[in-house]
Design a protein around this nucleic acid. Structure first.
Lengths: 137, 137
DNA sequence: CTGTATCCTTAGGGATACTG
DNA sequence: CAGTATCCCTAAGGATACAG
């Protein structure tokens, strides 16, 4: 991958600056999704070819990892890496920002207020939850 | 613009989820750029047609506004709106996240540490600076 | 200086079928 | 269930010229 620059904003863009990657990360981070078919079912209707491509790219850049499901060994499971979990503040800020302006937002105001007033605590507790679920796989 | 969903992450993506918009916002927010030709000069080498398109889109969705330069009335000046300035936490988190992983990053460690330890103060002071520069145009 | 307009090329993406 | 492979179409983007 040829980088356009070494600006940190551009670095972010090279990792997840497309129309789909953040939706996959959202599903892993907030919606408990871990399997290929679950990503396909999300409201934005990603296609199989695009999903395959983005999963591969996100794994290559170290944001997600791929493993076998502990319970059902034949099933494949995706997890956030530490690098992926560390995107939590970015994701929460986006939810918060959108919540201010989208009157049709899916997010309720209680949660929005919580991001604002208890941001650090919320990040900490969510991080612990994610690290328990994802990193231990 | 037809929205794929009302998820807040998707709302963000519909606003600035492409390879160029965040670079323009970055230039307005951190690099003091305000004019068409200044955006063209940035390291990522945006083309005139793409720049024109993104400026129009960002204005339509209310993130930037367009006005005449106070000093030189013939010159056109772009500013962040309140909605644009409110993206500051998102942008700082991206800088912070990238700074952890990009060893060639343009950002120095002092600034990174500052984002982490004095986040709220840094946001507040930067916001005041931006509101002075941009909103009063 | 701030844009459009045009032309052309490439990348992104939807639909569908197929495979281990 | 978790993907590839293919086909085809559209959107995105680079280069350049030109206009107000």
């Amino acid at each position: 991958m040829k980088m356009k620059s070494h600006c940190p904003i551009n670095y972010s863009l090279e990792h997840f600056g497309d129309r789909w990657s953040l939706l996959i990360i959202r599903d892993l981070m907030f919606n408990g999704k871990r399997h290929y078919n679950e990503f396909l079912e999300s409201g934005e209707k990603i296609s199989t070819s695009v999903l395959g491509d983005r999963l591969k790219h996100l794994e290559e850049v170290g944001i997600i990892s791929k493993g076998k499901d502990k319970i059902k060994k034949s099933r494949i499971k995706y997890s956030l890496t530490k690098k992926g979990i560390n995107m939590l503040p970015i994701m929460l800020d986006m939810v918060c920002w959108s919540g201010q302006y989208d009157n049709k937002s899916d997010v309720n105001n209680v949660f929005l207020a919580k991001i604002n007033t208890e941001r650090e605590m919320l990040i900490q507790s969510t991080r612990e939850k994610l690290e328990g679920e994802h990193l231990m796989d």
